[in-house]
Design a binder for these strands. Structure first.
Lengths: 335, 335
DNA sequence: ACACATCCCGGAAACGTTTCCCGCACGTTC
DNA sequence: GAACGTGCGGGAAACGTTTCCGGGATGTGT
């Protein structure tokens, strides 16, 4: 554990018998003298030189780092995004900084503010809510930002979004097509962006399938969690035994629904069909395997990373907006 | 989007009418002159100054960054770790860099090597396997490293480990106590660290409960995945219908086992009891809810972060080894 | 053979901080 | 009132790179 100081470019230069400028040029491929390159490389190996990225960053004004900020990496959708963002960035030589904001809007704004400390070259942000202060901060960031999620039209920032409204509609249409007539919906909180969009999609789905005489008596709002889904489904199905299909606003809720149905002795999909949303790994492992609407989390992550990379590459085209279409994966729970 | 250059400490100094040294001192709390502090702060606000962490890093020789490297963040155990590591580090002002190595040992070594680029102050590493080259690299890292997982005794590095051997043994003893006599085991690959340890624990559990006359005919090795578990369980249970309990080497495998049993028309836990390992969220949402051995992923993450923070704080006590004890959560699948 | 363009390499500045060192003003003590 | 210690603030060096610039050597065309 000898803490000898790391060799610098100066030692390399001395050993190779050249100037530090030449070392720098040789290492960065800005020289055509093959002999020089060979000598420098030999010296580098001899002294065990590794460039200091910090010094490089100071000089070149970019860090090779990108941050991804979201509420909680434990959320399956964000997890899928990270899994795609990281390799995409790494292939281009960028490191990924992870920032879980918790449900804290202040913290989210803090991330945006801290960008001017310039330890990152760019940011991918999944905001919980977009407040005026977000918009303000987004307008004047020092580095490129890509936002995943809904964003007002006039914010000049690259934007990748899912279409969970269409996704929910898709699910309702699928259920109706399979013969369901009393389609219940267990949503998350209505004052969240996805909660609202999914509710709208549900209503549109009913309208599109001629079931819109149905009032909201089959709709419940709760948390995007397993237990919440289970409890809520139990109440709903006890009060409305005529329900023949349930859409859960995410896979956790839908899995809770499956449990509730089992407890109530109802067969899935025989008595009641169930569809979830997000198409997380949970959908395939639940019983019965859960039909689920994929909102393309992985794709959104990849696209966001690609958009950001383009910006980092100097592209200054106008901000782009990409909407990833949802797709339904039908499994046994609604077959 | 005016790309005005960010103000530096020099502008602040000019506006405040003091030297840059004084600005630095005032900002870092190294001055006792309250008036000076006030003037500097005013100037900072006026010009909108934010210190460059890169320049600070170059000068102070630490970056405020810590890396966490593991195989795949998609793995629930690693995910739990990250969820604890990140806040723990953040509370002390450190940022977290995420590095998924994929199943690539070279990449893992690359992470270790890149530490000498000193863009991080420390590393938390979950190695897949520990080769001689790992040991060598770990001996001479430039920054503190904490390894989560098994590590040879003579590697002078802080180490946090689970005891998955005892964990597996715990599960077997629990199953035996509940009345099981023919306890099968579906393990991951035997040439992985956890695969080996869990197999050993399984054998010890059989020995401890007087079932060790049982040969390995009830043991299978496959991947740590859902489909693998399902397929393997189907084969195993077809060949050995007398099996009255199955231990899955992780929750994914065990969930696969639950599906297989349902397909074969066997009741859980009536005909066959099932226990998984890792106690991931999946255990609570599967049907029936899965008993599972927690290996304390979250705790391991937290402890690793705390150990690292101590090192970063300058503690040079001898390397520490912490073993987190497993604990069994009994749910319906083995009740 | 001379002028000129071209190419390489070394010196030095710059990136934006922190911190060492020193001079100076001030307060204290005799 | 002079000598001394104390403390505060400014100048400058340093962290480790990249890159601009200029000088010398080399090559080419007439």
């Amino acid at each position: 554990m000898t803490q000898r100081r790391r060799p610098t470019i100066h030692e390399v230069a001395k050993v190779a018998g050249v100037s530090i400028s030449s070392v720098s040029r040789a290492l960065n491929g800005n020289t055509s003298n093959a002999d020089m390159v060979a000598r420098v490389n030999a010296a580098v190996r001899q002294v065990g030189y590794v460039p200091s990225v910090v010094a490089q960053s100071l000089k070149t004004r970019h860090t090779g780092q990108v941050a991804f900020a979201m509420e909680d990496i434990g959320n399956a959708a964000y997890l899928e995004m990270v899994r795609r963002i990281q390799p995409t960035l790494r292939d281009e030589g960028y490191r990924l900084l992870l920032h879980s904001t918790g449900a804290d809007v202040e913290d989210e704004l803090g991330v945006l503010a801290s960008l001017s400390q310039n330890y990152v070259d760019g940011l991918i942000l999944c905001p919980l809510r977009v407040t005026d202060r977000h918009v303000e901060a987004l307008r004047q960031t020092a580095v490129p930002v890509v936002v995943i999620g809904l964003l007002p039209d006039d914010v000049p920032v690259d934007n990748v979004r899912a279409d969970s409204r269409v996704g929910a509609q898709l699910a309702v249409e699928h259920l109706a097509e399979a013969g369901a007539r009393r389609i219940a919906f267990i949503d998350g909180p209505l004052d969240t962006v996805p909660g609202r969009a999914r509710y709208d999609g549900y209503r549109r789905g009913l309208a599109a399938t001629g079931l819109s005489d149905q009032t909201d008596e089959l709709v419940r709002f709760t948390d995007f969690q397993f237990e919440a889904g289970r409890r809520t489904a139990r109440e709903l199905l006890t009060a409305h035994p005529e329900v023949d299909a349930v859409l859960g606003a995410n896979d956790l809720i839908a899995t809770g629904v499956l449990h509730a149905l089992r407890e109530l002795g109802r067969d899935v999909p025989g008595d009641v069909r169930v569809v979830g949303m997000d198409d997380t790994p949970l959908a395939a492992t639940s019983f019965p395997p859960l039909s689920s609407v994929s909102l393309g989390s992985a794709d959104r992550g990849r696209i966001a990373a690609e958009l950001l990379l383009r910006r980092l590459d100097g592209d200054d085209a106008p901000p782009e907006r990409v909407t990833v279409p949802p797709s339904l994966t039908v499994r046994e729970s609604s077959r």
